Amino acid sequence: MEVRTIKVFTTVDNINLHTQVVDMSMTYGQQFGPTYLDGADVTKIKPHNSHEGKTFYVLPNDDTLRVEAFEYYHTTDPSFLGRYMSALNHTKKWKYPQVNGLTSIKWADNNCYLATALLTLQQIELKFNPPALQDAYYRARAGEAANFCALILAYCNKTVGELGDVRETMSYLFQHANLDSCKRVLNVVCKTCGQQQTTLKGVEAVMYMGTLSYEQFKKGVQIPCTCGKQATKYLVQQESPFVMMSAPPAQYELKHGTFTCASEYTGNYQCGHYKHITSKETLYCIDGALLTKSSEYKGPITDVFYKENSYTTTIK
């Protein structure tokens, strides 16, 4: 009895394709271990004539594949690729409408935090270190965002349907971005203890939790000093293409032309909904596939993004 075979390709990165001759009487799992086709788990399936010449994702289970996976995804987590594939199996079914010149995501599976993050990423200057993220990001900007969303979920250790947080998501993504040249110098002034300067680099240099107003941050924000008295913390120097200011959701007025974009969060910790506000020729609110415009805006804002380049204080 002759062994019926077909020729397929296996890959971990969709760049390096490895030619395989597979036995049609055995499952993919018996031949390769966990195997995925377009995100779908085909591990328990036997090869079919229609699979001839198709590319299958496999887990990096030998040295060659491990090197290829690390170079593309910059992670050695053995569960990463499987999590990416199972997320992709959902995100490829989502709709990605162009809204006001940006790629958004039609609401499904509690994905409003991903839509808000995706919209924000198209408006701030950011370059990702893992080629996987950078490639998928370019495709997302062009309207094909399924891979990018699935990668975000995998890097953030999230599953489809789980509630997510924009600030946490951005923080994970910033860790995989090139923020080497970003720098922030802060000064804390206390009447009792004097003053202390701190220099922050990388992710810490672009994120701040405690106030939404970048102007206020430049002037000074009140913080408790270690001595128990009130101290003032203010920005001395900022070198970065953008800054992200966050605070627990509270009524906040966004003035046209003073910011790049913002995240609105309605609801409580267990259950809520994100919308995205962007400042173009007027203010726009993007909620999944829905767009509304207004000249002014007041609502429960939790993150505001500002364009920056270089700032030095005039406070002496």
Rank of each mutant, 00 (worst) to 15 (best):
K255N: 03
T75G: 01
Y73L: 04
D77I: 02
T116M: 04
F32M: 13
G299P: 00
A289K: 07
T198K: 12
Y306N: 00
F80Y: 01
T198E: 10
K127R: 12
A231S: 04
S240C: 01
N178H: 10
T278V: 10
S213C: 08
V166W: 00
P224L: 12
V99I: 15
K191Y: 11
A231D: 05
A250I: 12
P131V: 02
Q20D: 07
E52Q: 13
E2Q: 11
A150I: 01
R184L: 03
T75K: 09
H90P: 03
T76L: 12
R66L: 12
K93E: 11
S263H: 15
G33S: 04
V67S: 14
E253S: 11
V206E: 00
R167E: 00
I277N: 00
V221W: 05
T27Q: 11
H90K: 13
D303V: 06
S263A: 14
T27N: 14
D41T: 10
V67C: 15
M26A: 13
S50L: 14
E162M: 05
K44E: 14
L200W: 00
A108T: 02
L291T: 15
H51W: 02
Q216I: 03
P78M: 14
A262I: 00
Q175L: 10
N187W: 05
Y96C: 05
D109K: 01
F148W: 02
Q197G: 05
V236R: 02
S240M: 00
Y172R: 10
T226H: 13
D63E: 12
V166N: 04
P131A: 04
C112S: 01
R139V: 06
M24H: 09
V160N: 09
V304H: 01
Y172L: 14
A247G: 04
H176M: 10
S240P: 00
N49S: 11
T5W: 12
D62N: 13
S246D: 05
K280W: 10
Q195G: 07
C227F: 01
T55Q: 09
K298E: 14
H18A: 08
T19S: 13
T192Q: 11
D165C: 15
L235V: 09
Q251T: 15
D287P: 10
A108F: 05
V206L: 02
T10H: 04
C271Y: 13
T302H: 05
V12A: 09
L114P: 05
L118W: 06
W94Y: 10
M207Q: 05
L290N: 14
S50K: 11
R83L: 09
K54L: 13
R139C: 10
F70K: 11
L291C: 15
K293L: 09
C182T: 03
T169A: 05
D303F: 01
C285H: 12
A205P: 06
W94C: 03
A136Y: 08
Q30F: 04
K219I: 06
D180K: 10
E52L: 11
Q31Y: 14
T211A: 06
A262Q: 01
N129V: 08
Y84R: 06
C261I: 09
S25R: 13
R139Q: 11
Q216H: 10
L254I: 01
T120E: 05
V58S: 09
Q122P: 01
R83E: 06
C261N: 00
K44T: 12
N309Y: 01
A154K: 01
S263C: 13
E2V: 10
F32D: 06
V3G: 13
K280V: 09
T116A: 12
F217V: 06
T302G: 01
N110I: 02
P47I: 06
I286Q: 02
G210V: 00
C182S: 08
K183E: 07
K255I: 14
T282N: 08
L179T: 03
C156L: 08
I45T: 11
Q216S: 08
G33Y: 07
A115T: 14
L179Q: 02
I223G: 12
G220F: 01
N309T: 15
V22E: 00
A117V: 15
L121D: 02
Q134L: 07
A154F: 01
L37H: 13
T260L: 15
T199Q: 10
N14W: 09
T116H: 08
F174L: 09
G164M: 02
R66A: 13
Y306S: 01
L254F: 08
P224M: 14
P241Q: 11
T282W: 04
F9K: 12
H256K: 12
M209S: 14
S79M: 15
Y57C: 09
T75Q: 11
K93P: 07
S79N: 15
N129D: 08
T159N: 12
Y73T: 06
A140W: 10
M170D: 00
G228T: 06
Y28K: 06
Y96F: 14
D63H: 14
E125S: 07
T199Y: 07
Q122T: 02
Y96H: 04
E162V: 03
S86N: 14
T120C: 14
Q222C: 09
Y311R: 05
Y172F: 12
Y72S: 10
G29W: 12
I124Y: 01
P47L: 06
P224R: 14
Q238P: 02
L200F: 11
A140K: 02
D165V: 04
R141I: 10
R141S: 09
A289D: 14
K127G: 07
V188C: 08
C193D: 06
C271R: 11
N49Q: 00
L37A: 12
L151W: 03
G143F: 03
L102G: 07
K44V: 14
G164N: 09
F80A: 04
D62S: 14
Y269T: 15
T169N: 02
L151Y: 05
E68K: 07
L119K: 07
N187Y: 02
Y72M: 11
P130G: 03
A117P: 08
F148M: 13
T199D: 04
T312P: 12
L59F: 10
Q175C: 07
A231E: 00
T226D: 13
S213I: 04
S263D: 00
C112K: 02
G33T: 04
V203D: 04
N157Y: 12
A154I: 01
K219F: 04
M26S: 13
E71Y: 04
L200T: 07
T314K: 15
L200E: 00
C182Y: 09
P60H: 07
L81P: 06
Y265D: 07
C182N: 02
I124Q: 05
V236I: 07
K298P: 00
L65P: 04
Y311A: 11
G257Y: 09
G101V: 04
A262L: 01
T169H: 02
T169I: 10
V206W: 02
G39D: 08
P97H: 06
K255Q: 12
E125N: 10
L291I: 13
F305P: 01
S279M: 03
T314N: 15
V42W: 14
Y297R: 03
E52S: 13
L153Q: 02
N14D: 11
V42R: 05
A250F: 08
I223Q: 10
S240D: 02
Q98M: 11
E264L: 12
K201F: 14
S86P: 05
Y138M: 14
K275V: 13
T278K: 01
E71M: 01
